[in-house]
Design a protein around this nucleic acid. Sequence first.
DNA 1: TTGAAAGCGTTACCAG
DNA 2: CTGGTAACGCTTTCAA
Lengths: 343, 343
Amino acid sequence: MTSLKKPPTMSDVAKLAGVSTMTVSRALKPGASASRATRQKILAAAETLGYVLDSTAAGLSSGKTGFIAATIPSINNGNFADTVRGLTDGLAETNLQILLGYTNYDATEEERLIEQFLRRRPEAIVVTGGWHTDRCRRLLEMADVTVVETWDLPENPIDEVVGFSNANAAKVMVHHFHDQGYRCIGFIGGDTTHDPRGLSRRQGFVAALAELGLETKRLVAAGRPPITMREGASALRDLLAKWPDTEAVMCVSDLSAFGAMTECQRAGLRVPEDIAIAGFGAYDLSEHAIPPITTIDVSAYELGKLAAETIIRRAQDAGARPAKISRKIDPQLIARKSTSRAE
Amino acid sequence: MTSLKKPPTMSDVAKLAGVSTMTVSRALKPGASASRATRQKILAAAETLGYVLDSTAAGLSSGKTGFIAATIPSINNGNFADTVRGLTDGLAETNLQILLGYTNYDATEEERLIEQFLRRRPEAIVVTGGWHTDRCRRLLEMADVTVVETWDLPENPIDEVVGFSNANAAKVMVHHFHDQGYRCIGFIGGDTTHDPRGLSRRQGFVAALAELGLETKRLVAAGRPPITMREGASALRDLLAKWPDTEAVMCVSDLSAFGAMTECQRAGLRVPEDIAIAGFGAYDLSEHAIPPITTIDVSAYELGKLAAETIIRRAQDAGARPAKISRKIDPQLIARKSTSRAE
DNA sequence: TTGAAAGCGTTACCAG
DNA sequence: CTGGTAACGCTTTCAA
C-alpha cells in the first residue's frame, strides 16, 4: 500500500476546516475546549482527509510520549503474560501504551532493551526482578522516570517495587511437603546463573529444609531457563538416578513439574503414592493434569495491576516522590493431589 | 527517581565535545562518518552527561520511527508468542522495534489498537488474520505502510500475506482420523463469532467430513475464544452426552484437547482405545501428555520470521510495490498415540 | 473559544 | 569529514 502522497497533517485539516491548527489540536483531544460547531467541521475535515494524529510530533512537543516500557524474561510464559495483562488492564483508563520487550532471561539483553526503550522517553519503566547489569541499573537510576521492579523483592530497590519473596514461596512449599510427612525432598530448577527468581526459590528451598533439619543435597539444575517440560522430565530421571529414595520434588515451574510428573508415570511410578511432585506458577495445566499438581499462585495478574496503580499514583504526585514503596504480595499455596500422601 | 533537571540534549553533548550537533548526530549512528578522534570526544562527552538519544525527535525529523506494529489475539498463547519471537528474531539485524498489542480476539479492540498504533507512524504493520472491521481495514489500506496479514490466507488481502489455510489444516486432520478408521468424528471449538481461524478450522473440518461422506453434526461451541482446558473438558462432556457413539474428536487447540483428554480419563474412558483426541498448535504439552496428543504444527515461529523478511524486503524496494505476495506455509500433521487406533 | 508565534530535539540538505 | 540552517508536525504559551 505504498503510495507517494504525503499523509495529511494537522494544518491540512485546519485549512480544510477553516480554523487554526491549535483549534484542531484542541478539538481532537478528549477534554476538547472547542465549540460544537467548529469541532464538527474539524472532525469532518479530518475524516475526509483520512487524517491520523502524529504522536511522534505530539510527544516531542508536549514532552509526553505516552509510553510505558516493560520488560519480561520471556514472552512465551503464561505467568509473565498475566502480569502484562494486568498492567494493560490497569493502564486502560489512561492513554498510556505499553512498549513490551523480552530479555530471554539474559541481563545483557535486558540492558540492551532498556537502553533502546530509554530513547523512546517512556513515562515509566517496569522491569522483572531486581537483578540487572551495573550499567542497566545506572541507566534506570539516571532515567527521570518511575521504575517499578516486579516479581521479586530486591534488597536494594531502584525505585518502586511490586513483588513477592520467591524464597518465602519456596519455604511455604517445603513446609507443605513436611506437613504431608515427606522428608527426602528434591528440587528441580534451571541453571542458577540466568534466573534470579528461580535461584531465590532454590535458596529458599534449601534454607527451609535446613531449618527443618532435613537433607538439602537433592538439587538438580536442568539447563538454561526457562526450563521446559522435557528438561523437567530428564531432570527427574537424573534426580532419581542419583538419589533413588527421594520422596518428593519441588519444581521451579509448573511446566517442569508436569514434565517431571509424566516422566514418573512413564517410568511406572505413581504420583503421589510413590513420589510427590509440586510446581510453581498456578498454570491451568497444573489444575487439569492427572493427578492435579500442587503449586504456588503468585498472583501474576495482580502484580501487573498493582504496577499500573503505582505508575498512575506516581504520575499524579507530579514531581517529587523519593519514597520507595513496596507492594508486597503473599504467594498462596494450592495444595492438590500430586503431593497428598496416601494414608 | 524523579529529579528536576532536564535531561541533556544533543547540543549539550556538542557543546562539551566542541563540535556541532550534526557531528554528534553522525558520530552516534552505526555507520558513523566521523574521525576517530572527534568520535571519541563525543562518546566521552555523551557518557559524562549521561546522554540518551531521543528517538522521538529523531523520528520526527527523519520521518522514520523505527516501529513495527504487531497485533495478536492473545498474549497468553504459546503459538502467537512464537510468531512474535520469530518476528523479533527476524528483525534483529535491523533497528526496528516492535510495538505489540493484543486484541482479545475482538475485532473492535483490534480496530482501537490499530488506530492507536497508526498514530505512532510504524513502518510496517503485522496483523493476525484477514478479518477486520470495515473501518480497521480502511485504516490499514490508507496507511502508507506495508501491512502483513498472518495466520490465515485472506481471500482479499490488504497487502502482504504470510499464512496458511486453517481449513486445509483441519482437512489434513480429518483424513488422518479417516485413515485410522475413525468414522464418527466430532469437533470442539470456541464460539464461531470471535475466532475466524477457529471458524475456518471448523468449516474445513465439516467440509472434509462431507467429502468423505461422513456425518458432520458433532460440533460443540465451547465459549468465547480462546477456549481453555476447562472448556475443552466440559465440551467433551457435552459432546458425549449428545452423541455417545463418537469415536474421535478434533479440538481447535492443544489446550482444549488436553482438557478434553483428561476429562475422558477422569470419566474412565481410555484414549485412544475408547476415544481418540487431537489438538492443534503443536504445543509442548501435547508432546508430553500421556498419551501424547496428535496435533498440527503450523510453524508459528516461521510465520513471524517470514513476516519479518517480507517487511525487510518491502523496505528495500523503497516505494512502489503493489503486488500482493503470499508466503504460504503448509501445516504439518504430527500423528501421536492419542489418535492411534488400537489394532 | 480561538489564534499567532515559538519552540520541542533531531536529521536532511547543502556548503565548505 | 564537518557545520549551518531549515524543516519535521505538533503543543505550549500568551494574547485577543
